[in-house]
Amino acid sequence: MTLNEYNKSVDNFSDGVYRFILKNIRDEDKAKDIVQDTYMKLWEKVDTVSADKVKSYLFTAAYHTMIDYIRKNKRIVDIEQADFNKDITHETYSDAKEIIDQAVLLLPESQRTVILLRDYEGYSYTDIAEVTGLSETQVKVYIYRARVFLKDYIKSADLVI
């Protein structure tokens, strides 16, 4: 990877990585730190990461850095059980986007990650599996569960509205 390709990756992907992390942890400063760390890691591997793999490398590195951060802050929750058993309380929403944003926050960590990668970055199941270290089947299952949860949340919010 050349210097030019590295700097181009900053222009092309830093926004996406930042949005992805910010949506997950909802802490602007920490999200920026993670982006900085991610590009630092890329710079250290600049000789070995090829330009066509840089996006995948960035999201993978960012994801793992984020997971480390979440674990340190003990905010990670059990993937299978979290949130679905919660009593959903709907606040006042001004638009549908607000509803969906709120619903995303209630998703378990893994489901939120895979659906953000899927919708924000348009990643295939294979790509998401590579980034997160999950199997393709797990990715499909998490996306399915996330969509069902979001649909149910939107439906119930619509009823409230």
């Binding site: 210097l3 700097n7 900053v10 830093s14 996406g16 930042y18 920026k32 982006v35 919708d119 924000y120």
Partner: peptide, 29 residues
């Protein structure tokens, strides 16, 4: 029901950008 599912597709807020790009860029290797 399908319309509700269509709403579950998340749209990124493109107004959110990483503003410190210059701090990430390098001038030489």
């Amino acid at each position: 029901e399908y319309k509700l599912y269509e709403k579950t597709v998340l749209q990124p807020d493109l107004k959110i950008t990483f503003t410190d790009k210059n701090t990430l860029k390098r001038s030489f290797i």
